[in-house]
Simulated scan of single mutants.
Amino acid sequence: MQGPAFAAYLAASVLISGLGAVGAALALTPSFGGPELSRGARIYTEECAGCHGASLQGRIAGPPGQRIPPLGVTGHAWQHSDAELFRLVARGSNPGAGSAMPAFDDRLAQAEIEAVLIYVKSHWPARFRYQQAALHPGGDGALVALLRDPDATLPGDCLPAVATTR
């Protein structure tokens, strides 16, 4: 097999094998709806909104120079992996780093912290969620997130164009 037909076969094989490899991971990737989102919204309102704001907007607070970062689209939380975000919520941050994020591991269970992160991530545009998902070990996170998002479409340049001439 040579030429355009082989290119089409190869592209389809790569796509199908990639989808098969992430199939098992789909069950592990939270969707952005349902009970976890509602639970995360409730916990965020009770535990986080007082500092980070009801709309995840963040604020300037406390001593000069101390800033509570936004968690929504104007922030950079999406540039951190889930493991980093979880660790920050659970253990807090170093006050010497210009922030005084308290630790929540004594007040929130692991599943509650994860629900809050689902809620926060639900406010990010799809492109932020895809880029953030790509930070996870395993490398298939962005594809998994793309496949789980019902509003997503594959970009036109995702697969190489296949010539129709013989």
Rank of each mutant, 00 (worst) to 15 (best):
E112A: 06
G53E: 08
F128M: 09
L37V: 06
L26K: 11
P150E: 06
I118C: 04
L146M: 13
L37Y: 04
G65E: 11
S122G: 14
P63Q: 13
Q110L: 00
A115F: 02
P150W: 05
D157G: 06
E36V: 08
D82R: 12
A97T: 15
L135D: 01
A161P: 02
A77M: 10
I60T: 10
A109D: 00
Q2S: 14
D151A: 13
A163C: 08
Q79A: 12
V116N: 03
H80L: 15
L71G: 07
G156S: 11
R129Q: 09
L71T: 01
A5I: 04
L146A: 15
C158M: 14
H136E: 15
G96V: 07
L154N: 01
P160I: 08
R39Q: 08
R87K: 15
P63S: 14
G138F: 04
W78E: 04
R148Q: 12
A103W: 12
T165R: 15
Y44C: 04
G138P: 06
G72E: 01
G40V: 04
A161F: 13
Q131K: 07
G20S: 10
D157E: 04
S99L: 08
I60V: 13
A126H: 11
F104L: 10
V120S: 11
A134R: 03
D149T: 02
Y44V: 07
D149M: 05
I16D: 04
L147D: 02
F128S: 08
G96A: 15
G65N: 13
L26Q: 13
Y9V: 13
G18H: 06
Q2D: 10
P63H: 07
R166Q: 12
S38E: 10
A49R: 09
L146E: 06
S81P: 04
Q57N: 10
A142P: 01
L147E: 04
S99K: 11
Y44E: 07
R67P: 00
A145L: 01
A161E: 13
G53H: 08
S122F: 03
